[in-house]
Design a protein around this nucleic acid. Structure first.
Lengths: 244, 244
DNA sequence: CGGTAAATTGACTGCTCTCAATTTACGTGG
DNA sequence: CCACGTAAATTGAGAGCAGTCAATTTACCG
């Protein structure tokens, strides 16, 4: 267990061994939910289980590692380059979400770079495994479709709520989104860096810093003893409805 | 042919009759491409063919008409309401794209309203038809997945290129996108209304008007005799790389 | 303890929003 | 065919928000 190994991929990550998908404790959340037990009896291409430290890269835009990642714990950001060279974050993926599904179309490459925001626990599923399962178990098609649809819904929300209006509103919305999507039962969140928030809402780090400082002063965001932050939901929501 | 009919759906549209998907002249573009001839021998739920006038509504956010639309000709906009009540356009769909695929998940409703930007030629495919085909022809799963992936790619481009930077750059990018996605061989485009462009890039109609007027004066956009516009690609592209 | 990177804060400039007035476009009805 | 009414587009002026540049403080890692 937890033995580092020579590999040509995921070099920054710690290998936790081959995944035993059949007995995965959170399979109900994952890409392979809904598959019958018999699906795992075949000699499938290996599914590996990794821990990625914060800041490490799962895959890079333009590559093709012939694998999809299924996030078990932690949060990944998907980065895209704009035409003027700056980077923008187009999505945050948490537990149960899949990254790199675009490789299911033959000849395609990763559309984004995936970088761990926090420490991440993820399974690396070879595309060949998914293709083989698709032949015998149509259920996997639905799982893939549902995950794409979820990402499309998130992308649309990103466009609508984080792409317009004054920066204060967009940050308020981002805070509410992170509180909603966290797996933490107290809805406490780890704050992203100012640069990351800027790359999400399309604002400069300085503007983000000013607004975040203001929210902390006004008690809209309160730092907890464990370093997590608790957001004042009513105050945040009231900011969204204001005119302007 | 072209006979108006009493229907509970698509009331603004002209019914062109039942679609004969097997002999569809552009089937290679559509959701049913790749299906064998035998797929159409069954007693499928009916696929109808409509013409929607510009400005008419294909479906409304929150409804469930148990049908997906496959666009044959023209352009639809997908509208979403923001938290402060204004509307935002999250996507433009042209020939070959499908609208309403979210209904393939049981119990779901349309996530957007779909409104015709130009006159539209579209087929209305009952969800039951797709579900039936999925059982026998796994190829349809791939077609659905590819269309979702295309929409996700478009949404990401929307976020990255239309969500950041000065309004002039975003409009330049929108013009290039419309030139790229038009089916017109001369790459000439129909200009959207100022309000629509504003709802796409997140700017006021006044700002859009000023920038568009400027582009027309500088010859970056030239009006043609047929009312279409031709864009100066190099000039538009050079605007994207400028700093700021 | 030192060095680098990130965050914070200030001052100033420039872009975009809002409000308002005017012009243009377009469909209707005489 | 013209006159009219409504809606959209255009243009101007002023205020506010956000970007940039720069200086300082803080945080973090070795």
């Amino acid at each position: 267990m937890a033995t580092p190994l020579k590999r040509s991929y995921c070099t920054d990550a710690t290998w936790l061994g081959r995944s035993d998908c059949r007995h995965c404790s959170i399979r109900h959340l994952m890409l392979f939910s809904g598959l019958p037990e018999s699906a795992f009896e075949d000699h499938l291409a290996p599914v590996d289980h990794f821990i990625f430290p914060a800041g490490s890269t799962l895959f890079r835009e333009g590559d093709n590692d012939a694998a999809v990642f299924s996030i078990r714990r932690g949060i990944t950001k998907l980065l895209s380059l704009t035409s003027d060279g700056t980077q923008r974050i187009v999505r945050l993926l948490g537990p149960g979400m899949s990254a790199g599904l675009e490789l299911l179309d033959p000849g395609e490459r990763y559309r984004h770079s995936a970088v761990a925001v926090s420490e991440i626990d993820a399974c690396r599923i070879p595309v060949a495994t998914i293709e083989k399962l698709e032949r015998d178990f149509p259920e996997i098609c639905h799982q893939v479709r549902q995950r794409l649809q979820m990402q499309l819904d998130r992308a649309d929300e990103w466009i609508v709520e984080l792409g317009t209006g004054p920066a204060r509103k967009r940050i308020a919305h981002l805070m509410l989104m992170m509180m909603e999507y966290t797996s933490d039962t107290n809805r406490e969140i780890t704050l992203l860096s100012g640069t990351d928030i800027g790359a999400i809402i399309g604002a400069s780090p300085e503007t983000v810093s000013r607004i975040m400082a203001d929210m902390k002063r006004n008690g809209i965001l309160q730092k907890n003893s464990n370093g997590l932050y608790k957001g004042n939901t009513p105050a945040l929501e009231s900011m969204l409805e204001e005119a302007g």
